Amino acid sequence: MMSEKIAILVDSGTDVPKGVIDNGPFFMVPLRIIFSDREYRDGIDVSSDNIFPLIQKELPKTSLPDGELIHQIFDEIKDQGYTHVIIVTISSGLSGTYNALRVLSDHYEGLTFHAIDTKNVGIGAGILAIYAGELVKQGKSFAEVISDTESKIAKTKIFFNVDTLEYLQKGGRIGLVASLLGSALKLKPIISCNPDGIYYTVAKVRGLNKSIDKTIELVKAHIGNHKRFNLAVTQADAMETAEKVYHRLRELFPTAENIYFGKVSPALSVHTGPGSLGVVCQVLD
């Protein structure tokens, strides 16, 4: 039987940290951020650190990765000797990227593909890709990596706080998130993805500190009595708060197998706005 050399292909919206991407077997296809006068490749031409001054002047549109570029990345994967590719994307309920990559892979010869719809967003999707990458490094087969990773979709939950719903509303990504009345009360929504991969409101809490406390409470509830789990923290223009949350998670959950830390991609930042923070819990047992 021909040996399998497996690559993991993610879109930039999965927020897999650069250090993980660089350590393989990962490849990344960038989403597109489109302004009236120019276009940026997510995470390549524009970073999480410099997107917010741009969107203060104009709120851009985000779009699927470029088809020609996707084919170039397929070629690169094949040229590096890979035989199998597991595609891991943000939720098909929030983006057309899953379908675009799946359709293009169906018409590409020389590689065996399987696409995983994470029903999640940001590092909530990325932590599933990272998990798949670890299985590949352990020598698991293509079928085993797919089966094991897909079994973790329902066990992976993101909770993210946004400073305002303005960006989700303008970008048309509001999903099932009810608009908040009484912003003067400083109500902070905690948002997640439902089983269909659509945004919905988990809780509404007054003030940042209470919002963080509630988020950690939700993480505790998701972990329950499980012994094995991964955590992740991601932020967009909220580094100080994210670092505090990271250290609290370290203290509260010392047995976590991993606690990943990263940034919300520029393309997702367009929809969440500055001051957003995400925490992910992935149960493994």
Rank of each mutant, 00 (worst) to 15 (best):
84 H>F: 00
159 F>I: 07
136 V>Y: 10
151 S>I: 03
102 R>E: 07
138 Q>L: 07
85 V>Q: 00
111 L>D: 01
82 Y>I: 00
129 A>T: 08
91 S>Y: 12
107 H>T: 13
127 I>K: 08
90 I>F: 08
135 L>D: 04
84 H>E: 01
129 A>V: 06
150 E>R: 15
106 D>V: 01
109 E>D: 14
95 S>H: 03
128 L>F: 08
128 L>R: 03
110 G>I: 04
127 I>E: 04
116 I>Y: 07
118 T>A: 10
107 H>N: 14
125 A>C: 09
125 A>H: 11
92 S>W: 00
123 I>N: 13
114 H>R: 14
143 A>F: 10
103 V>N: 13
89 T>S: 13
150 E>G: 06
157 K>I: 05
84 H>D: 02
124 G>D: 10
86 I>D: 00
111 L>G: 02
113 F>R: 03
100 A>P: 00
140 K>E: 11
106 D>Q: 15
81 G>E: 09
143 A>Y: 15
122 G>Q: 07
105 S>T: 05
92 S>H: 04
145 V>G: 08
109 E>L: 10
129 A>D: 04
111 L>N: 02
130 I>D: 03
97 T>Q: 05
142 F>I: 02
108 Y>G: 12
101 L>S: 07
114 H>N: 15
154 A>K: 15
149 T>I: 06
90 I>Q: 03
153 I>S: 09
106 D>P: 05
101 L>I: 07
129 A>F: 15
158 I>T: 13
98 Y>L: 09
146 I>L: 12
129 A>I: 11
154 A>S: 15
87 I>S: 12
130 I>L: 05
126 G>K: 00
117 D>S: 09
134 E>S: 08
110 G>L: 07
145 V>A: 10
84 H>C: 00
83 T>E: 00
108 Y>N: 11
121 V>I: 13
101 L>V: 06
94 L>Y: 06
119 K>C: 09
117 D>M: 06
87 I>L: 12
121 V>W: 00
104 L>M: 15
125 A>I: 10
157 K>G: 04
125 A>L: 10
150 E>K: 15
152 K>S: 11
112 T>L: 08
94 L>C: 09
141 S>K: 09
123 I>W: 08
143 A>M: 13
132 A>Y: 06
142 F>D: 02
157 K>P: 03
140 K>Q: 12
155 K>M: 13
154 A>I: 05
116 I>P: 08
144 E>M: 06
112 T>Y: 02
119 K>T: 01
155 K>T: 05
159 F>T: 05
142 F>Y: 14
139 G>A: 08
117 D>W: 03
149 T>N: 11
156 T>N: 12
146 I>N: 03
89 T>K: 02
88 V>Y: 08
